[in-house]
Design a protein around this nucleic acid. Structure first.
Lengths: 213, 213
DNA sequence: GTCTATATTTAGATAGAC
DNA sequence: GTCTATCTAAATATAGAC
C-alpha cells in the first residue's frame, strides 16, 4: 500500500477517489454485480490503478464493508452506552439518529443485509454483537425497568426486532412501498421523518401497555 | 418450449427438476451470483438441458421470480379481500399466514427485496400494487374504523410499514439477529412463532392507543 | 431428449512502457 | 503513479453427435 503525504490543496488523491467511487457502486449493486470497470469509470481513473492501490476487488470491498458496518452501528453504540439518559430517551435518540442516517444513505440496509445473507461468517466474525447489546448501559436499564414494574419483560431480542423492523425495514422495502403509495423519493422521506416522532410513541405503547389510559 | 404429457407415475420430469433446483439456488444466491452450472448440478442434469428447456438463465429466472412473487402476495391478497372478517381478524390472519410461510421459506424476503433494489422497474412493472392495497375490502374497513372513532387515521402506508416491518424484517436480518442472540435456526423460529401472537396485540395497541386502559 | 465439445463474451488481474 | 495492451479464468450459450 503506497504512502501519500499529500499536503495538497483541496484536491482528493487517487486512493480516496477510488474508495468514494467503490462505496457508491458497491452500495448500489452489491459485491458480485459490481465490476471493477464500473468503479474505475465512476472514479474517473484507469482500471489498472484499482489493483495498484488495493490489490484486488475483494480487498477493496472488505475495506468499504468495514467502514459501512461502522457507520451502521456507530450511532447505535453511542446511544446504547450513554449512562446519563433514560430508556425512553435512548429510543428517541436511536430512532432519530438512524432514520436521519438512512435518509442520507438509503442503500446501506439492503446492502448489509444482502451481503450478510451471502457471507454470514465473513461479515459477522469480528462483530461482538452479543456484548454490544447485552453488556450495554441500555441492557441494565432495560431489565431494571421491568423489575421495577414487576412484570414479565419482553425479551430484549424481541424488542430489538421491533425497533429495527419499524425503523430500518421501510428502507429495505422502499421500491415496493414507493410503488404501492405512488411516492417520490421526497415523499417517502417525509413519511420517514414522520416516523421519527411516531416510532418512540409506538414502542412506548408496546412496552408499557398499562401505562397509557 | 417443449410440450410434455407425462401421464407418468410419480417421477418428476426434467423441466420440473430444473425449476425446483433453480428456485432453490436463485433464492439462496440471487440472480448474479447464481451460475447455471450450480442449477444443473443441483438438479442432477446436464448443463445444456437448461438452455434447451428455458433458452437462457434470465428467462428461467423470470419464471422463478414470478412464482415467488405470487407466493409472497397470494396469502396477503386472500386475507385483504375477505369481506367477512373484521379488521382485527385480518391482522391476525395475515401475521399467522406470513410468519408460517416465512419459516418454511426464509430466504424469500431478502431475495425479493434484493432483486427489487437492483431491477425495480422489471419487477414492479406488472404489479398493480396500488389496487392491491387501496381497493381491497381491508381498505374500506380501515377508513370506516377510523371514521367511526372520529380520530385521525394513521396513513395506510404507515400501517403497512409497521405490520411488514414487524413480521418480515426479522427474516431479512436473521443472520445478524441469530449472531446477537446466539440462536440456532430452531430457536429463531420459536421466537417468530411467539410473534404470531404478539404482533396483532402490538398493532392493536398502536392503532387504538385509547382503547386499552 | 440428452450428452460432449466448443464458441463467445466478459471480467479480474498483470506486464511493461512512460 | 499512471497508462495501454494483454493474459487468464470463468460463465453463458450453442453446435452437433447420439
Amino acid at each position: 500500500m503506497p504512502k501519500r503525504y499529500s499536503p495538497d490543496k483541496k484536491d482528493i488523491n487517487t486512493e480516496e477517489k477510488i474508495k468514494i467511487a467503490a462505496r457508491s457502486v458497491f452500495h448500489k449493486k452489491g459485491f458480485v454485480a459490481t465490476r471493477t470497470r464500473d468503479i474505475a469509470l465512476e472514479a474517473g481513473i484507469n482500471l489498472a490503478l484499482l489493483n495498484y492501490y488495493f490489490r484486488s476487488k475483494e480487498k477493496l470491498f472488505d475495506i468499504i464493508m468495514a467502514e459501512t458496518l461502522h457507520t451502521f452501528v456507530a450511532s447505535l453504540i453511542s446511544v446504547l452506552n450513554d449512562e446519563s439518559t433514560s430508556l425512553q430517551h435512548k429510543v428517541e435518540a436511536f430512532t432519530k439518529a438512524y432514520i436521519e442516517m438512512l435518509i442520507r444513505e438509503p442503500e446501506i440496509p439492503i446492502f448489509i443485509m444482502s451481503e450478510m445473507h451471502h457471507h454470514p461468517d465473513k461479515l459477522l466474525a469480528r462483530l461482538n454483537a452479543k456484548a454490544l447489546l447485552f453488556e450495554s448501559a441500555f441492557a441494565k436499564q432495560y431489565v431494571q425497568e421491568f423489575e421495577k414494574k414487576n412484570i414479565a419483560a419482553m425479551p430484549m431480542l424481541q424488542f430489538l426486532m421491533n425497533i429495527l423492523g419499524l425503523t430500518v425495514f421501510p428502507f429495505v422495502a422502499s421500491p415496493l412501498l414507493k410503488k404501492i403509495g405512488n411516492l417520490s423519493g421526497n415523499e417517502f422521506n417525509a413519511l420517514m421523518k414522520e416516523r421519527i416522532k411516531r416510532i418512540p410513541e409506538w414502542i412506548s405503547l408496546i412496552m408499557n401497555p398499562d401505562a397509557h389510559p
